[in-house]
């Protein structure tokens, strides 16, 4: 029993602590950002009394730690403050955009996993195709998402007219149609990264002695690949895939801007320019949380795929 409670503390407590510390750092950093929220809300023609009144109302005259505490307790109940540009609660603005970004990120993640792992496997196993695969990977890694976005738009949207040039769409199929090019541009770099790691891992496992044993025992090649090569190469592939999916959330900032998609990523850029800091803090903490949760999931999965740890637990 004690092992399990210790495990829970480690798996849940650690990530929570990191999210807490980073949220504090981000909150404090952005309090020092230039720009006065009171002046923004009231406009330049307000009287000093009005400003002082609003500052008190918003709690801006309180010490920093107290303000953070208020923000934190608010955030835990879903109250992330008020957007100065939209003049609405931050949560109301975020909700619809989060859905769009989740669609985009999930779509990209699927592409990364499917294409990245298969491409890597081919490059790892086939000596003949290896040079072509690694050239493809090298190109993919060097292709920035914002360039990929414009290349895809000019070919598939402008020239061929198969896909729309901007927007996120509504409803499931329309969303998929709108988000295909953005998802691909977002996925390319990470796909190449996952493929690179997978190819190296598969290639290394393929040369192991136990794979020779499996061949010597006449096992079907597909079974050998699945059970003795890919399964053994799982740990680095899981790490690379997890890091990719975590990185997608941040990468969405660029791609959403390039395709004018109204998601969380483009919102954070607009909010920074508009000095709408409550929104920036909320989105930043959200992205960090996703990042940290993904990293924890990677570690958990590692524990599951490694019999050394599994056996010592039981």
């Amino acid at each position: 029993m004690r092992a399990t409670t210790g495990g829970v503390a480690r798996w849940i407590g650690g990530p929570c602590a990191i999210i807490l510390v980073t949220s504090f750092v981000i909150y404090v950093a952005l309090t020092f950002a230039p720009g006065d929220p009171v002046a923004q809300i009231l406009g330049s023609r307000s009287s000093p009394e009005q400003r002082a009144e609003l500052a008190r109302e918003l709690g801006l005259n309180l010490p920093l730690l107290v303000r953070y505490w208020h923000w934190l307790t608010g955030a835990l109940t879903g109250n992330f403050g008020i957007s100065t540009t939209f003049r609405q609660p931050v949560a109301n603005i975020l909700m619809p955009r989060i859905a769009t970004t989740i669609y985009l990120v999930a779509y990209s993640a699927l592409i990364i996993l499917a294409v990245g792992i298969s491409l890597g496997s081919v490059g790892g196993v086939s000596r003949r195709l290896r040079p072509y695969v690694s050239a493809l990977i090298g190109f993919g890694i060097a292709l920035p998402g914002y360039v990929a976005a414009l290349v895809l738009v000019s070919i598939f949207a402008v020239y061929l007219g198969w896909f729309p040039t901007f927007g996120a769409g509504a409803g499931f199929l329309d969303r998929i149609w709108h988000l295909t090019l953005p998802a691909i541009s977002l996925a390319i770099g990470w796909t190449a990264y996952v493929a690179q790691i997978s190819a190296a891992a598969v290639r290394e496992e393929e040369g192991r002695e136990h794979v020779m044993t499996a061949r010597a025992r006449g096992l079907p090649p597909a079974l050998i690949f699945r059970k003795h090569i890919l399964r053994n190469a799982a740990a680095p592939i899981i790490t690379a895939s997890g890091l990719s999916v975590a990185g997608l959330v941040a990468g969405a900032v660029v791609v959403e801007t390039a395709f004018a998609i109204d998601g969380v990523g483009s919102l954070v850029v607009k909010s920074v320019s508009a000095k709408d800091y409550d929104v920036v803090v909320a989105i930043s903490v959200l992205i960090v949380a996703v990042f940290v949760v993904m990293n924890t999931l990677i570690a958990l999965l590692h524990n599951i795929v490694d019999p050394h740890r599994k056996a010592s637990d039981s």
């Binding site: 192991r208 002695e209 136990h210 020779m212 044993t213 499996a214 061949r215 010597a216 025992r217 006449g218 096992l219 059970k227 003795h228 399964r231 053994n232 795929v305 490694d306 019999p307």
Partner: peptide, 21 residues
């Protein structure tokens, strides 16, 4: 079939020749 049924192969280093997973 030849490899699996007719031959039985015992390798040098069982630690390396048996999949640890």
């Amino acid at each position: 079939l030849y490899r699996s049924r007719d031959l039985g192969v015992i390798f040098q280093d069982p630690r390396a020749h048996i999949n640890p997973l």
